[in-house]
Nucleic acid binder design. Structure first.
Lengths: 217, 217
DNA sequence: TAGATTGTTAATCGATTAACAATC
DNA sequence: TAGATTGTTAATCGATTAACAATC
């Protein structure tokens, strides 16, 4: 389909979920159509950028009318793979792993949590939010046999590296990495890093430099 | 100090925590000095970018020698405000709030969690990781009286908006926002959004388009 | 048809990379 | 001093914004 088109820049891909969120909100409010201009005001970006972004995927609008909200929402959902029934496992049933297992917003977006893995035998066999906790000794086979798409890695620093290798060996297709370390895997396995303390530090910088930025001009 | 210098671009600020992480690792390995070139290879960025980034803050190196790891680490820590003793509260003691309260990596970076707030009277008065859970009816006053810097907002969508207003009224200086919605606050309060489902969607896109990207060239 | 708004090309802006003189 | 490596200027690249012809 989108064969000989140029690769979509990373910045554009990162903006898609935000469009998705705003469009979903519009749909909830029963708004049927929206122009790039109206959307740009809501989202505080330029209308130009919106049109450019959508046109990386072929353009979903109609001159003189704008964009049909429901249609556009579905298209973006498709692009993001929300309708592909992707499956996930959580690796590490610590505080964060358990919180994410109970976090139902993933399921709402079409991602199905199929298993939770941990090395602590005291919790292996129990269930979290209805999902079975399994021993991580079985993990490579599990991924292979169940064709798991995504692993959410919430293991501590020390264990994360080795586990990432095992996930790769099992054939995982992507990793949402919450561990402090960056994983060193072949480039064909996409990794999205969620470094919470990085974000806190960035925020801290902005808090610290807020007044200065203000007075600037 | 850095008075009439130009504003540091956001992309540069976002890279600082990553430098911090790598430098910390080098220090752990007892490495005293590093050149931009050696660091660039570790971090998979260009040496030029590293030097440019550091020079937004005045340059921390020495010609012919490189950068002193410990010195550079401390300088970046200073820039990020890690030595300012910033205080935080967590607002919302649900799964995610509790997980973050138990997450000690924040404390390791110099951020002190001073309180947790919730509206559920069954847990108000209990402690999580040694921190008292308070009723969120007191929150504006608490922020004011204790001069709280940062709020970590883990409330569900519906409640997050109103709470953000109250945090602002109390004089919060920055918000790390985990709620699905984007907050609509005056520009002088920095907000860092952690939209977990956005990241999962971006990852999903990359997984879906991996093979295509591969075959490209 | 006239008005509105897209899709798309062209212009601008900013960020990244390259190059090299300064200097430890 | 010679070699190494920074700090910084200049060149390139890519992303954003502006403009407008196409078209619903």
């Amino acid at each position: 389909m989108q064969s000989n088109e140029k690769k979509v820049p990373d910045v554009v891909v990162k903006r898609l979920p935000r469009y998705y969120r705003y469009l979903r909100e519009l749909l909830n409010q029963d708004i049927k159509r929206i122009s790039s201009n109206a959307l740009s005001k809501m989202m505080k970006v330029t209308a130009s950028q919106i049109r450019q972004d959508f046109n990386f995927f072929g353009g979903f609008g109609q001159q003189g009318y704008g964009y049909n909200v429901e249609y556009l929402l579905n298209e973006i959902g498709d692009i993001l793979g929300l309708n592909d029934g992707e499956t996930m496992i959580i690796v590490g049933a610590g505080n964060l792993g358990r919180a994410l297992a109970n976090h139902n917003s993933f399921a709402k977006r079409g991602f199905t949590l199929v298993g939770i893995f941990d090395n602590d035998n005291r919790i292996v066999g129990s269930t979290i939010n209805g999902i079975r906790v399994m021993s991580d000794s079985e993990i490579e086979n599990y991924i292979k046999e169940n064709n798991v798409d995504i692993a959410i890695l919430t293991l501590p620093h020390a264990a994360a590296h080795e586990m990432a290798q095992r996930l790769a060996k099992g054939g995982i297709k992507g990793i949402l990495n919450f561990s402090y370390s960056e994983l060193d895997l072949p480039d064909d396995i996409p990794i999205e890093n969620v470094h919470l303390s990085d974000m806190l530090m960035t925020l801290s910088y902005r808090v610290k430099n807020q007044s200065k930025t203000e007075n600037e001009e």
